[in-house]
């Protein structure tokens, strides 16, 4: 019979690649740090991110001449503390990333599981919806909607949430199809389980690891799209400090003070890179687990 040591080796095998994978660890650290910064933003900021002081405009960051120790990353064109705005910008980016993924995940996973499990007409409808969604140019529709309805954090999240569900649906549908003919699905039904129970408790947990990977990709995409919308002036309305908005506001000053555009740009790059590294790592880990 199987010995007691089996569970321990299995657990070790599962944990090791993550630790070995420096990139995954780095990604996890970045995303974890961003989450913490977003949550505790009010306690971390050295200054009020909205407080303007026109006497202290465009102070350079600490590594350049003329910097001030009070403003580590300098100030923007209205004299607002750049570090504080960057920290609050993390909040906006993470909020948009997480909430968009929740909204699009709910839509996509529901459609995907229903289509994959029931097949036939239901699946035809789901495939039609996915095809329709894929033929919509993302950024144009997002721009139009935000331009029509007016820009606010809620509108941006809802718009992106309603647009970014396609990958969730495709993955949920394909993985559900692989599962639905397995005996434990039939066994659950033969044990009197309701349809909702089969879909939510038998199917969903077994495709969840695929969906986590999709979630990281979508989160990175959502954050980038928000930045793009904000850059075009149709995302988060000022004075809310979004990284995209900071880049937009900085573009007029970039020739004389290139760091105003560099700092939020680097922040955006690092966060998206971190999320993607984490996603790649998760995919590798779960892939290895599936091969056993």
């Amino acid at each position: 019979m199987t010995s007691m040591s089996v569970p321990q080796t299995m657990r070790a095998e599962r944990r090791l690649p993550a630790l070995r994978h420096l990139a995954t660890l780095l990604g996890a650290l970045i995303v974890g740090a961003a989450l913490l910064i977003a949550i505790f933003a009010p306690y971390l900021v050295p200054h009020d991110p909205f407080a303007q002081d026109l006497n202290l405009r465009l102070i350079p960051p600490f590594w350049m001449d003329g910097s001030q120790p009070m403003h580590l990353l300098g100030t923007d064109q209205l004299g607002r503390d750049y570090l504080s705005r960057l920290i609050y910008g993390t909040r906006v980016s993470m909020l948009i990333g997480v909430l968009t993924v929740i909204a699009s995940g709910l839509i996509g996973i529901t459609l995907g599981i229903l289509g994959g499990f029931y097949g036939g007409r239901t699946d035809d409808l789901v495939m039609f919806l996915i095809t329709c969604r894929l033929s919509i140019p993302l950024i144009l529709v997002a721009l139009t909607v935000v331009a029509l309805v007016g820009s606010s954090l809620t509108v941006v999240i809802l718009t992106l949430g309603l647009l970014l569900w396609d990958r969730f649906a495709v993955v949920a549908r394909a993985t559900t199809m692989q599962l639905r003919s397995l005996d434990y699905i039939a066994a659950a039904q033969a044990a009197g389980a309701s349809r909702a129970h089969v879909l939510l408790r038998e199917v969903l947990p077994n495709i969840a690891h695929h969906l986590v990977v999709v979630a990281t990709l979508e989160m990175a995409l959502a954050i980038l799209l928000e930045a793009a919308l904000s850059f075009l002036g149709l995302g988060v309305p000022p004075p809310l400090p979004s990284w995209g908005l900071m880049i937009a506001e900085a573009k007029e000053y970039m020739f004389f003070s290139p760091w105003v555009i560099m700092i939020p740009g680097v922040a955006l790059f690092v966060l998206v890179l971190g999320i993607n590294l984490l996603g790649d790592g998760l995919r590798d880990m779960l892939g290895a687990e599936l091969q056993r």
Binding site: L182, D183, Y184, A186, A187, A188, Q189, A190, A191, G192, A193, S194, E202, P205, N206
Partner: peptide, 24 residues
Amino acid sequence: MARLRGDKIAMIFQEPMTSLNPAY
């Protein structure tokens, strides 16, 4: 019928490797 399944009528399947849900 669902109330009867698993209660008064039970069923065992052929493939023991796939008839238990790996997630629980």
